[in-house]
Amino acid sequence: MTPAGSLLIADDLHKAYGPTVALDGAEFSIHPGEVVAVMGPSGSGKSTLLHCLAGIVPPDSGSIVYNGREMATMSDAERSALRRSEFGFVFQFGQLVPELTCVENVALPLRLNGTSRKEAERTALTWMERLEVDDLRGKRPGEVSGGQGQRVAVARALVTSPRVLFADEPTGALDSLNGERVMDLLTDAARSTNAAVVLVTHEARVAAYSDREIVVRDGKSRDMERVV
């Protein structure tokens, strides 16, 4: 797919950690409502690419344009606001705050944006219903299974109705059945809100939920749609 009309476009990204080159001219683009898998072997640079795209880590050089704006020109506060309100995140482990109940965890991004507790938890519950974990509302993360916890994390990532969901190995710690359920619900929920999903995975069965994939090797990306 061409970058025209893309929500997020990255061009010629370079990033090194000391002598280690993580990105070496990587490119990326994604449209609203599209699910793009970022694949590649361990250490290929796929997580670094996600961190750069999400504004978590600045690239050494290259351009990242989100919704028509060059991210490098944004202030730290603007990038933080973007991550809080326009981006959602799902990681492999340890995303939920153990002291909070599941519904409080899901409501947290809304609370941080200033929404009242009652309103935030009401919205959180509708997302928990979509992810089929509303019965866990009063439980703490330590009291739920890995698969359930990951669905709570997906609900939390989607509660602000982000325009881009970044998912880094979202099923990496789950067995096949739970992983599939998470992917079913995650992609259904994202598609229903027209959110773009950047899905970093090394598992082909997870990547098969995407619309297309790019492969990162040695810090270089390859759009597989242009291969066939």
Binding site: D184, A204, R205, A207, A208, Y209, S210, E213, V215, R222, M224, E225, V227, V228
Partner: peptide, 23 residues
């Protein structure tokens, strides 16, 4: 490498069709 990449893309294309059918 191109041969492997082309095959890889074709495999994943089939996996998407099967995943969709499965769902």
């Amino acid at each position: 490498a191109d041969i492997l990449d082309t095959q890889r893309a074709e495999h994943l294309r089939m996996m998407r069709i099967l995943t969709d059918r499965k769902r």
